[in-house]
């Protein structure tokens, strides 16, 4: 299997006042193509710090990071920007859509920074990405005309549009209720089944069961890294709705 992400002995140290905070303290793992990895851990364990480095938004203090065969340590700022633009799709907890900008324009945004994509192709790919998240009918809606779940799906479409080698999600269901979380996880599972590689930060254990592998952090160390039996989010959603109906009766 092809390695998408390889990190070796990764350290990230923040200097706060006169003290060093070791947010990441020697992390090593590999993510292969087609994996759906959940990154777990208590608050402050270093999940976001790790994801920022995987997303090339931040650089490690030491250690090696190779994404899709490219050694990130050797790249300058502009090259990192291009790398993010071509290889990575981000999904944030708070969606981060541009206000007063249509869903379609939001999804097109990453391709605006890619000179190789023409205006026509940009639009076509954005429409296709919105279709993939089942929001083709909301293309011209503004974020404030969409529900939280729909906004997150627009954000996922934006993460898909550049056909990245990996999708990085930081607490992508953190702002959503259980039902909508399951819907979003169903969508992620759908993308995963189509071959997408996904790294998904969460601190909710039941969300993690929808992935194929869990990496658990504590104080900047990997304390657990195991393959798990993937549960179906669609089934969980159906059961959840049944329970709701039962309690309603």
């Amino acid at each position: 299997m092809k390695e998408i992400i390889e990190i070796k002995d990764l350290h990230r140290t923040f200097r706060v006042g006169s003290e060093d905070v070791h947010a990441l303290d020697g992390i090593t793992f590999t993510i292969y193509e087609g994996e759906f990895v959940s990154i777990m851990g208590t608050s402050g364990s270093g999940k976001s710090t790790l994801l920022n480095i995987l997303g090339c938004l931040d650089t490690p203090t030491s250690g090696e990071y190779i994404i899709n065969g490219i050694s990130v340590n050797l790249l300058n700022k502009n090259q990192l920007s291009t790398l993010r633009n071509r290889q990575i799709g981000f999904v944030f907890q708070n969606y981060n859509l541009l206000a007063r900008t249509t869903a379609l324009d939001n999804v097109q945004l990453p391709l605006m920074y890619n000179h190789e994509v023409s205006a026509k192709e940009r639009r076509e790919r954005a429409v296709a990405a919105l279709e993939a998240v089942k929001l083709a009918d909301r293309m011209n809606h503004m974020p404030n005309q969409l529900s939280g779940g729909q906004q997150q799906r627009v954000a996922i479409a934006r993460a898909l549009v550049n056909d990245p080698v990996i999708i990085l999600a930081d607490e992508a269901t953190g702002n959503l209720d259980t039902r909508t979380s399951y819907e979003i996880m169903t969508l992620f599972q759908d993308l995963h089944s189509k071959g997408k590689t996904i790294a998904f930060v969460t601190h909710e254990p039941d969300i993690a069961t929808f992935t194929t592998r869990t990496i658990k952090l504590r104080d900047g160390h990997v304390v657990l890294d195991e393959k798990i039996d993937q549960q179906s989010a669609a089934v969980a959603l159906a059961e959840y709705e049944k329970n709701i109906q039962n309690t309603a009766i």
Binding site: S81, F90, Y113, N162
Partner: peptide, 16 residues
């Protein structure tokens, strides 16, 4: 600021 952060995250260079 947030918009700028997002644009940079999805690939905008400083120059952009």
């Amino acid at each position: 600021t947030k918009e700028i952060g997002l644009r940079m995250a999805i690939g905008a260079k400083s120059k952009d």
